[in-house]
């Protein structure tokens, strides 16, 4: 679930784009440098990007029946690193907007911030933290993927709350509303994404 085309007021659309653009540009520059030095990585990056896109579009057994879906950014961040994921995640969002009419172009900046920046960095941070405190790889990967998924939806709720504060209870009330509808229903899905990611991670590191 992303913020739909036209849902954000102009100022917000521009604002979130301004926040996301430098971070994605930073990731993009690092990527371009890698690719210029090793042109063959282009193909592997494209294949990885396609993998992330398919992950995010895989219908995992849905509990809520909502339009929620996994983000796939947790696994991507653990496998490819967060700076690569900012770019691949942005491309995934662009593809979702253009191939699935899911999300949007004017809301791309906001969605990139929640899914391609916050999600991967949370995942990466949690994974590194887990390793640092000696948690098993399984636990670290589970937490990284589940929290990346959940944080994306919390940020989305916050973005919507900032844009549409409740006439009575302001940002806080609005955040509660959006979080209840969008983020809370995502909790079981986040757990499932965590579990699936553990299966994937275990297999990929074993074979």
């Amino acid at each position: 679930m992303h913020i739909m085309e036209g849902y954000l007021p102009v100022a917000h659309a521009v604002g979130w784009t301004a926040v996301s653009a430098p971070i994605v540009a930073w990731g993009g520059m690092r990527l371009v440098r890698t690719v210029r030095a090793h042109p063959e990585t282009k193909m592997l990056l494209a294949a990885s990007g396609a993998f992330c896109f398919v992950l995010s579009a895989l219908k995992i057994p849905s509990v809520t029946g909502s339009c929620s879906h996994p983000t796939g950014t947790g696994l991507g961040a653990v496998l490819f690193g967060p700076s690569v994921m900012t770019v691949l995640g942005s491309l995934v969002l662009l593809f979702q907007a253009l191939l699935l009419a899911h999300g949007g172009l004017t809301t791309l900046g906001a969605n990139v911030f929640s899914m391609a920046i916050v999600g991967p960095f949370v995942a990466w941070g949690v994974f590194r933290l887990g390793q640092a405190i000696g948690a098993s790889a399984v636990v670290a990967v589970f937490m990284a993927a589940a929290l990346a998924d959940l944080s994306t939806y919390i940020v989305t709720s916050a973005q919507l709350a900032v844009a549409f504060p409740d006439p009575v209870s302001g940002f806080a009330g609005s955040f509660v509303k959006f979080a209840t509808v969008f983020a809370l229903t995502q909790v079981p899905l986040a757990i499932i994404e965590g579990l699936v990611t553990v299966v994937v991670f275990t297999i990929l590191t074993n074979y």
Binding site: E40, M43, L44, A46, A47, S48, A50, F51, V54, L55, L58, I60, P61, L75, L79, I192, L195, V196, T197, V198, V199, V200, T202, I203, L204, Y207
Partner: peptide
């Protein structure tokens, strides 16, 4: 649900190496 989580994981785990392989052959 339990089998479905396992199967989804297997599917995704199979997909990545296949795609990377495809990338190498495309090279």
């Amino acid at each position: 649900l339990r089998r479905a989580i396992h199967s989804s994981g297997l599917l995704a785990a199979t997909l990545l190496p296949r795609l990377l392989d495809r990338g190498r052959r495309m090279e």
